[in-house]
Design a protein around this nucleic acid. Structure first.
Lengths: 119, 119
DNA sequence: TTGACATGCAACAAAAAAGTTGCATGTTTT
DNA sequence: AAAACATGCAACTTTTTTGTTGCATGTCAA
């Protein structure tokens, strides 16, 4: 098994995706993702600056993101550098695509049905 | 109305997106979305069947989805029919696209930089 | 009109999430 | 070595979320 989290490692697709969405479903964490999407690895202290929260709170949010596989971290001297890992977000996007496509298909069939029974 | 539901009505983009992700970040709600993505409007009772939860719990989840704009409902006689509304999900997907693109761009620049200073 | 169905509302309990404070540990820098 | 920095861990409080039960209201169908 890869170094994924328990939630992400689950076979149930719904649970796996839900954990990613839940991680994204907080504006503090969304802001952290935004900051890390610039590609640069950043330490906890640095990420704390500009977030009105304590370092410990930011750390907890980062651990949530890590649990969902959205970021990974590595130690460098006395600091821990976090970086964005896009995999789970791509999966989530794919899931949203599937849902959207299923809905559009259903809508298309409905319109075809109406057209066939009307004219 | 919960604070999250209020957030959905807010203009702040980060908050708005977070509320959509938060709504999707629960496997019960994700399953409800899956069921509604077939395009058919369904009542609360019907959506309750097959979900091991009480009707009231399902209702609450539906209200959360409604608060995020992911579903809408309309009364028909004695029942309330919920239907999937894809707008916010599309917005969320767009947001994920932007984050992903920003990351890829940054990565591309980094690789170009390394190549330029190496060979 | 009566009974079955569909839902609303409110109060409550349990659990999870979010955030704080205080203290300990390890790492640079001076 | 000492000061400053970066982080970890644990206890704790406050809020939010999740889910339940009980009762009230409205609607359909026999």
């Amino acid at each position: 098994m890869s170094s994924r989290t328990k939630a992400a490692a689950s076979n149930h697709p719904e649970r796996r995706h839900a954990s990613v969405f839940a991680a994204l479903g907080d504006r503090t964490r969304l802001a952290l993702i935004g900051r890390l999407s610039c590609g640069e690895r950043q330490s906890i202290s640095r990420l704390t600056k500009g977030s009105r929260l304590t370092r410990q709170a930011v750390t907890k949010h980062l651990r949530v993101l890590e649990g969902a596989g959205l970021v990974m971290c590595s130690r460098k001297g006395r600091e821990i550098l976090f970086e964005f890992t896009p995999g789970p977000m791509e999966e989530a996007k794919t899931y949203l695509d599937e849902v959207g496509r299923q809905w559009e298909d259903a809508l298309g069939r409905l319109k075809a049905f109406i057209a066939a029974h009307q004219g």
